[in-house]
Structures are given as structure tokens and as C-alpha cells.
Design a protein around this nucleic acid. Structure first.
Lengths: 200, 200
DNA sequence: TAGCCGCCTATACCAAGGTATGCCCGCGCG
DNA sequence: CGCGCGGGCATACCTTGGTATAGGCGGCTA
């Protein structure tokens, strides 16, 4: 759980609130401090005041979304307005609370956000493993994989790329082995997840 | 384009605004009137005042989401607050505008909403066609389809369901024909889209 | 230079996929 | 009752997939 707010007393209040339900908490007074810090790699979320020293919360949100450190955000504000909240929600914020808020509302938002982060992490983990496997393929193998998973027969693939059928079979076998696919169905699903498509 | 607002002058203003960019407009003073009316089946969206005679806009949104008539909603409000806007956005609203709003803001929101609706329609159309094909399968065929697309070989499928391999081949062929799949890869993708999984 | 790797090909062989023909059973329906 | 249909099984035959063995070519690098 990461809290960024320039009000020390609010930070402390949130800290004890989150600790009371067993969450680890990291406190920061500004976005810059957060970026400078190293954080443990666990399901988490960001609780952010929309008015921060330096950058605005919305800008910081956009900045995070562009970086590889994407994590669910819950905004807080004392003097926000509707267009601001709408913009934050459209940009993917999990919630947008007005100060003062009820503890329970914050806890609900946080548990929803952590659940989202958990899902995203699982997603990223499996897709990055897939990427790693895919990266071990040679150019030819990638080409054959795309064509095979698009539903073409070996002979059609061979004609498409100007190879003999037997060579296609070799590459195909290599692809199956390198991708650790146990069946064609497996490979098709991997190709889907990787966003492959046979471009003619 | 569907507009629901109890203020006749605002309805007229929005009507002429939308017509000026070539959109067809249907006007209603309440949610009940909208539900009673028949509407042409084309990409569209709903522009809704959050304070309506009878039901609240948020309730109406929830009601629409539960029904089969799901369509993108843009809320308007004269006296809304942040929690209200956040709730609407969380429930899937495309935008939430405060009166008075700039014409351009409304037009931007509407074009985004119509784009969303167009995408959803395409999605629904292809998935409902898939459903229709899937519904023509017999119980056995569905069973074999699930197992085959999970990556099992015919003989393994046969063992799993206690049939001979040749019978599995027959069913498998029937599945391919009925689902209009041109290859196993096709069938696997269909199974994915249908959310099938082989339950042991 | 030798060795490795990616790449291509061929022959041969076996496993798996796929279809046709033919026959059987049970059930519901006109 | 006869008929259609879903379901099942077998033989036969052909296609496709998959692997092993073996060889050739070009490029990179220790």
C-alpha cells in the first residue's frame, strides 16, 4: 500500500488504518519521493492526493500509465470538482474519494484496487513468460508459427514461404519444443495471447 | 442518439446540436417513455440527465445494464456531486458532464460513445453467430469439442468419454462441419471465444 | 581454420487425422 | 407401425503430422 499526501497527519491516519487490516504501508509526501524509492514487489495500490507538491495527481497518473510501473490508483481530494473526478476515472482510477471520507469507503476502494493489481500481475507474469519463450524462436520459426496457428496445413505453409513441406515440419517441431506447447491447441492459444496473426 | 431530459428547451438544443452533425435523434422526457418506444437498431448512445422524473439516472443505468439493451451512457447534471459522478463512471458511463457544458465537449463524448457502441455491436454479432452454431451441436458433440480443443488426441478423448476412437472422429468431423471451422486452429479460437474448457 | 548454428532438403517410417460405407440400437413422432 | 435422428462401432483407405537419420550451405566466432 503506497500513500502519497503532503499532509503528515493524514498520512499517519491512513497508515494506522491500513496497518489495522494487516497491510504494509509506504508513506511519501510527494510523487518525486515515491519514484526515488524502491518498493517490494507485491500486490498493492496507490492512494494519492490529487493536489500534490510539484506535479498534479492526474499528470502523475498519466506518467505512471506510460511507464512500466502501472498500478491501480485511488484519488483523494479536498477541493476537487466533477470534471476532475471524471477525468481521473476515465484514465483508469479505481476510485475518487472526497475528504473527509469514511474509513470503510477507503478500505473498500483499497481492497478492490489490490484485487485488480493481483489480477494484472498474474496476467503480466504469464504473458511475460510466453514472451520469453517466443523470443527464443528464430525468424523462420516465428513465421511458421504464425502461419501454422492461422490454420494452414504444412504444405500450404510451405507454398506460402517457398519451402519444402519437410522443412516446415522441422521448424514446426522446433516451435512446439521451444514454446513448450503440448499440442497444436496449446500453440494456438499462445499465438492468441501473443497477438500473432499471419500477414500475407 | 437518444436524449432523456425533462427540460424541453434543453432537449431541443441538444436535438439541433446533434442533427447539425448528421445524427438521428430521439427525444424523451422520462425513462419510462424511452422504454416504451421502439428504436432503430443502429450504433447509438444515450444522453441522460441524472435527475429524472421517477427513477434516478443511476438506477436506470443499472437497470439497462441488467437488461439486454446495454448501451453507452453520457450523463448530464446541473446539481451533481463527485460521489455521484464516480459512481456513474464506475458503473460504466462514458462521460459525466456538468451543466452548462460546451457543445464541443458533448460532441466529443457522443462520438466516443458511438464508437464504443459500434465495437460492442460487432462483438455481439460475431459472438451470437458463434453461439447459434454452437447451439446446433448435440450434447456429445459439445463434449468432444471441449476435449479436442483442450489439446487431447482422438484416442485420449475416446478413453476419457469411454468411446472408440473412430466414433470420436465422426463426432469431431460433425463438430467441424457444424461450427463451420476450416481448421483445428479455427475451432480452438471458437472454443476460446465461447469460454469452453474441458472439465474433468 | 575448425566448430557451431541457422537454415534447407531428402528418404523412410510410423502415428494420427479424416472420410466413406455399412450396420446396429433406442427413442420420439406422425 | 415406419421413419428420422442421435448415438455407436468396424473395416478400409488415404492424407497429414511428426521424427529420425543424413547431408549440404553460409555465416560467425573462438
Amino acid at each position: 500500500m503506497i500513500v502519497v499526501d503532503d499532509d503528515a497527519s493524514l498520512r499517519d491516519a491512513l497508515s494506522s488504518l491500513f496497518r489495522s487490516i494487516g497491510l504494509e504501508v509506504a508513506l511519501f509526501a510527494s510523487a518525486a519521493e515515491l519514484l526515488a524509492a524502491k518498493l517490494p514487489d507485491a500486490p498493492r495500490c496507490l492512494v494519492l492526493d490529487i493536489r500534490l507538491p510539484g506535479v498534479s495527481g492526474l499528470d502523475f497518473q498519466a506518467q505512471l500509465a506510460r511507464s512500466d510501473m502501472e498500478l491501480p490508483i485511488i484519488f483523494m481530494t479536498g477541493h476537487g470538482d466533477i470534471p476532475m473526478s471524471v477525468r481521473a476515472m476515465k484514465a483508469g482510477a479505481v476510485d475518487f474519494l472526497t475528504k473527509p471520507f469514511r474509513d470503510q469507503d477507503m478500505l473498500d476502494a483499497v481492497s478492490a484496487a489490490i484485487e485488480i493489481d493481483r489480477g494484472r500481475r498474474a496476467e503480466r507474469a504469464s504473458s511475460s513468460k510466453l514472451r520469453a519463450l517466443y523470443d527464443t524462436l528464430t525468424e523462420r520459426e516465428r513465421q511458421i508459427m504464425a502461419l501454422v496457428t492461422s490454420g494452414l496445413m504444412n504444405k500450404q505453409v510451405a507454398a506460402e514461404v517457398g519451402l519444402s513441406e519437410i522443412t516446415v515440419k522441422i521448424h514446426r517441431g522446433n516451435v512446439m519444443r521451444k514454446m513448450e506447447a503440448h499440442s497444436l491447441a496449446d500453440l494456438v492459444r499462445m499465438a492468441e495471447a501473443l497477438g500473432l496473426s499471419a500477414k500475407s
